[in-house]
Design a protein around this nucleic acid. Structure first.
Length: 848
RNA sequence: GCGAAAGUGGCGGAACUGGCAGACGCGCCGGACUUAGGAUCCGGUGGCCGCAAGGCCGUGGGGGUUCGACUCCCCCCUUUCGCACCA
């Protein structure tokens, strides 16, 4: 593309280089704690160093940078750091495939991506940069893990876990999406393994309740977290066994509908239920029974993905006693009962639960109606087409009959408690977080197994447990660390005898659950962070990142914040005050990805148009939350706008340099022409709009629009061609209002287009760069219009406009409106029934 | 099925607590400047009727509240996202 300008060339690439070098040299983005200034912590989710950042990734960093740069000019002490979420599977998989050690590829990728961000001019405090894969960082994962272990918040148990056969590792529940691995999409299998868990459920109630305090989070994310935690109030009820099974004499069930218990005609247990094995053992056909139950266990995860699984069950031959009716009810194993939720057993009430209803119909089990609609008759069980699962009034329930459901629940729960066979309880869907991973490229779990002393944590003074170099990555067999003899073989910290190290590593989400605290004090080698520094900087004021972290990262971080709080290291509850989830950048209607070949590389765009045009385009095209479709034409439009600003300011900067501002002392002595007053008004209106759009709503697109409008006004006010042709621009009033407008524009543009703005600011005669500048001040008195145009409606249709003073009274507006010729022609010969005046906004005349 | 968000020109999107629908930009059309320009500057650009002035229609569909509805209420349709046998 060949651009040539009449006045001066806009060469953004030169500006990028010049100003990036100056910023780095002057270290202008490196804050220190300063109690005299309000602080602002602006953070974008740190990056996994995958190799190359495309414009989709980069969009988020630009959003954060606009906020950070604005806040600096607004007088805040801004912390805007960046780092690398550097452990993880892709690097290890690359090692298996290409033989490059994860450490080598990771640091190579970091170097490249850091360069990309620097070329975009993102104002990061690079002094605070760190990568989570360094012992200086991950030793604090280990330290924290041991603190949690000491408090019972980290524990080991054998459990059925999600296993990804491709990644060869365990996945947390949060990492299973539609029954498949969140990373590679492979269908997840189950395995029974000894695993380390973090007790996030300890904070379930608090994590749920505190969502109400997160008023600056998107509703969507709050809803997702609420559903994920999944609190339900109900009761545990014990059904005695008709005859004991292997020393057990009862089954506990969880129900939210104890009011329907008299209609419970059978009990269902999960295939994983502990009673399954003793029942099988006592059966003559035990092997066949086990085989069938096993089929249930393996079937569900895979089959559920596609939709409904046929409900299936197997009668155990055993019976339990319904504690409310005293009746014996059969016990079945059912494929749809979840072992890991509640007690793994449910009381089935076919008349009032759709699943139980289908099951009862299939196996011809009795159906008993015990709730009728509040205003209707009890249904005939034989005629039922589906379960009636709403609340109603109890029937056929002995002494409870006639009670409304809600009251029945309370009183029947009390009864169960009084009789000792049940109690009210709260159940969560949230489960403890399994963090063991059978992989290499992660934080070693700092535990030692001793034959004599069982499980022992590594003493603090022996931390970090350093990840040993592994020479070969085969991708086969057990954890790679298990092959490293000198790592595995150790001594017991308690007895000194031979012991074995834990060879699993931690889920990488541990790394990202507290990195934002570490940024407050990134080089601390005696604690994860200095509590005083965290107290100054935290919580994060503005946090932005992808919606894909709505549950995983954002719930783990809220959990870890509470753990640190309870360790006395910090004193806030919530890590992120405001959350913005930015939309993705699409190309050709699809998410950018290397495999689809539709990646837009920021460096290519920067080479062509400069960093500022790219930044401005991505901010202007849509609000940050929206998805956007990448178009080169849109980028060119932003380039044109910057060139237009450049041309204008470059033309007039000499004429306005050093001219007293209209706001300066004595400035009110200036006698402004109407056009000059209008420009001032437009300038201040723009300041108001841009400031509010950025700070209050983060509508960065309309902030840019407002500036474009001001530039259009400026071209009309002082066409650059005038100056070229020798026109004066000499009148001091004219130059004064021009200077005010230009400087405000350059300052407001600087968060979006910092390189261009810095250069123009310098050409306007300012020293010390934008770091020494302040955001322009909005003056409501100046912004006030001298006259306003008020629309007039007749019977709801726009019929005329009147020009009046903004202070015009209701009576004046009414009079002017009725006198307007255009309005007159529509009300002539009719009776004016009503005139509504919205002061300064509109007059509405009703005739009939 | 449950939950959340959203439907506005050819396109991306504006419209604060109900008050001039379509700001701003892209694209397109025209003009100026030019040897020329895909550069730049200026103007036009929702649909229909009209030479024009002007009129009528118009924010997914249908109803309602109101002097006035993109905005509020009810019903429906569509799209996107999340959860999905949680007892």
């Amino acid at each position: 593309m060949n651009y040539n300008f009449s006045v001066a060339d806009y060469r953004p690439q030169d500006l990028d280089r010049k100003w990036q070098a100056r910023w780095a040299e002057a270290r202008v983005f490196e804050p220190t704690e300063d109690p005299s200034k309000p602080k602002f912590y602006c953070l974008e989710m740190f990056a996994y160093p995958s190799g190359h950042a495309h414009v989709g990734h980069v969009r988020n960093y630009i959003i954060g940078d606009v906020i950070a740069r604005t806040k600096r000019l607004r007088g805040f002490n801004v912390l805007h750091p960046f780092g690398w979420d550097a452990f993880g599977l892709p690097a290890e998989n690359a090692a298996i495939k290409h033989g490059i050690h994860p450490e080598v590829s990771t640091f190579g990728n970091i170097a490249h991506m850091k360069g990309q961000l620097q070329r975009l001019g993102i104002s990061y405090a690079w002094d605070r940069e760190f990568a989570t894969c360094t012992p200086e960082y991950y030793r604090w994962n280990q330290w924290l893990f041991i603190r949690m272990f000491e408090r019972g918040l980290a524990y080991r148990k054998r459990s059925t876990v999600n296993w990804c056969p491709v990644d060869q590792t365990v996945l947390a529940n949060e990492q299973v999406v539609d029954g498949a691995c969140w990373r590679c999409g492979t269908t997840v299998e189950t395995r029974d393994l000894e695993q380390w868990f973090l007790k996030i459920t300890h904070y379930a109630d608090e994590l749920l309740a505190a969502l109400d305090t997160l008023t600056r989070w998107p509703e969507k994310v709050l809803t997702m977290q609420r559903n994920w935690i999944g609190r339900s109030e109900g009761a545990r009820v014990r059904f005695a066994l008709a005859e004991p099974i292997g020393g057990t004499d009862g089954i506990e069930v969880f129900t939210t509908r104890i009011d329907t218990i008299c209609g419970s005609t059978f009990v269902l247990i999960a295939p994983e239920h502990p009673l399954v094995e003793p029942i099988a053992a006592a059966r003559e056909d035990g092997a066949a029974f086990r085989a069938q139950v096993n089929r249930f266990r393996t079937q569900d995860r895979t089959a559920r993905i596609s939709g409904e699984v046929e409900k299936e069950g197997l009668f155990t031959g055993r019976f339990a006693v319904n504690p409310f009716t005293g009746e014996q009810v059969p016990i079945w194993v059912a494929n749809f009962v979840l072992g890991e939720y509640g007690t793994g057993a449910v009381m089935a009430v076919p008349a009032h639960d759709q699943r139980d209803f289908e099951f009862a119909r299939k196996y011809s089990l009795p159906i008993r109606v015990v709730v009728r609609p509040a205003d209707g008759e009890a249904a005939n069980p034989d005629a039922l087409e589906e379960a009636y699962s709403d609340d109603g009034v109890l029937v056929e329930s002995g002494e409870w009959s006639g009670l409304p459901s809600a009251e029945a629940r309370a009183r029947m729960t009390e009864h169960a408690k009084a009789k000792g066979f049940g109690e009210g309880t709260v159940q969560y869907r949230l489960k403890d977080w399994g963090i063991s991973r059978q992989r290499y490229w992660g934080t070693p779990i700092p535990m030692v197994y001793c034959e004599r002393d069982d499980i022992q944590p590594v003493p603090d003074d022996q931390l970090p447990v350093v990840l040993p170099k592994v020479a070969e990555f085969t991708g086969r067999g057990a954890s790679p660390l298990a092959q490293v003899r000198e790592f595995v073989e150790t001594t017991c910290p308690k007895c000194g005898g031979p012991a074995r190290r834990e060879t699993d590593t931690m889920d990488t989400f541990v790394d990202s659950s507290w990195y934002f605290d570490r940024f407050a004090d990134p080089h601390n080698d005696t604690l994860p962070f200095d509590p005083a520094k965290v107290k100054y900087w935290l919580p994060v004021d503005f946090y932005s990142g992808g919606i894909e972290h709505a549950i995983l990262h954002l719930i783990y971080s809220r959990f870890f914040t509470r753990v640190f709080r309870d360790l006395g290291l910090l004193d806030h509850d919530e890590p992120f005050l405001q959350l913005l989830t930015q939309g993705m950048v699409l190309k050709d209607g699809k998410v950018m990805s290397k495999s689809k070949g539709n990646v837009v590389d920021p460096d290519t765009m920067i080479q062509k148009y400069g960093a500022d045009a790219l930044r401005l385009y991505v901010m202007f095209v849509a609000p940050p939350e929206n998805e956007i479709e990448w178009t080169d034409a849109g980028l060119e439009g932003s380039y044109r706008f910057l060139a237009r600003v450049w041309r204008f300011v470059d033309t007039w900067c000499e004429a306005v340099r050093g001219v007293p501002l209209p706001t300066a002392a004595g400035g009110d002595a200036l006698e402004l022409s109407p056009a000059e007053r209008t420009l001032r008004r437009r300038t201040h209106e723009t300041i108001r709009r841009v400031t509010a759009d950025i700070e209050e709503r983060q509508h960065l697109n309309t902030a840019v629009s407002a500036m474009m409008e001001l530039v259009n006004d400026l071209y009309a006010f002082a066409p650059p061609d005038d100056r070229k042709a020798g026109s004066d621009g000499d009148r001091v009033e004219r130059r004064s209002v021009l200077r005010e407008a230009i400087e405000a524009l350059v300052l407001m543009l600087s968060p979006f287009a910092p390189h261009t703005a810095e250069e123009l600011w310098e050409r306007l005669g300012h020293e010390g760069g934008l770091a020494a500048a302040a955001w322009p001040t909005f003056d409501p008195a100046v912004a006030k219009a001298e006259t306003v145009v008020v629309p007039v409606q007749v019977n709801g249709k726009l019929r005329g406009r009147i020009t009046v003073s903004p202070e015009a009274t209701e009576a004046e507006l009414r009079e002017a409106a009725l006198a307007d010729p255009a309005v007159q022609s529509h009300i002539a010969g009719k009776t004016v029934r009503k005139v509504i005046v919205a002061q300064g906004r509109l007059v509405s005349v009703v005739v009939g």
